[in-house]
């Protein structure tokens, strides 16, 4: 504690906070930015089984374009880092219904975020073979 106060004092006397933001010639800048880790598991609401192949999008950020941030694995798990914003809209979408069953899209909006890690356990509704309507929206 005392050590850091002295360090900041000396640093402040000469060149303030920039002192700690060094980088080597052949290196990158340092990373002091804020981001958030979203992770969780996607299961079927019908039988609780993990759902593979669900694309997870952050839908309120343009630069992702049409690319997903994650695709759920065979255990239904997904995880990714994204920008820490005051609200994050996450969409879970089954883009290839023929592969692992057909599930309804789910959207959720995260607000009041005070952490850098959020667990999202998601249940997706399976679409009846005859009912191909899409676009169910619900928040967790």
């Amino acid at each position: 504690m005392k050590k850091n106060r002295l360090r900041k004092f000396l640093g402040g006397l000469s060149f303030a906070t920039l002192l700690f933001a060094f980088q080597a010639c052949y290196g990158t800048p340092q990373d002091d930015g804020l981001d958030i880790y979203l992770y969780g598991k996607i299961v079927s609401k019908t039988n609780g089984e993990p759902v593979q192949g669900i694309n997870v999008f952050v839908s309120n950020l343009d630069y992702y374009g049409t690319l997903p941030c994650a695709v759920s694995d065979e255990d239904g798990n997904f995880s990714f880092f994204t920008v820490l914003n005051d609200h994050i809209a996450v969409r879970f979408e089954d883009i290839n219904p023929l592969e692992y069953g057909h599930f309804l899209q789910k959207d959720t909006v995260l607000t009041n975020i005070y952490t850098t890690k959020i667990l999202l356990n998601i249940e997706l509704e399976e679409v009846d073979a005859l009912d191909h309507k899409k676009g169910g929206v619900s928040a967790i």
């Binding site: 290196g27 981001d35 992702y64 690319l67 941030c69 880092f81």
Partner: peptide, 28 residues
């Protein structure tokens, strides 16, 4: 944290998004 120095030859859109998703925070 992690970052990377690259010559850019293989840095395309898919790679960019995949690296951001993996938590890359610095790039040169």
């Amino acid at each position: 944290r992690w970052g990377m120095v690259t010559n850019g030859q293989l840095y395309d859109r898919d790679k960019h998004i995949a690296l951001l998703n993996a938590g890359m925070g610095a790039l040169t």
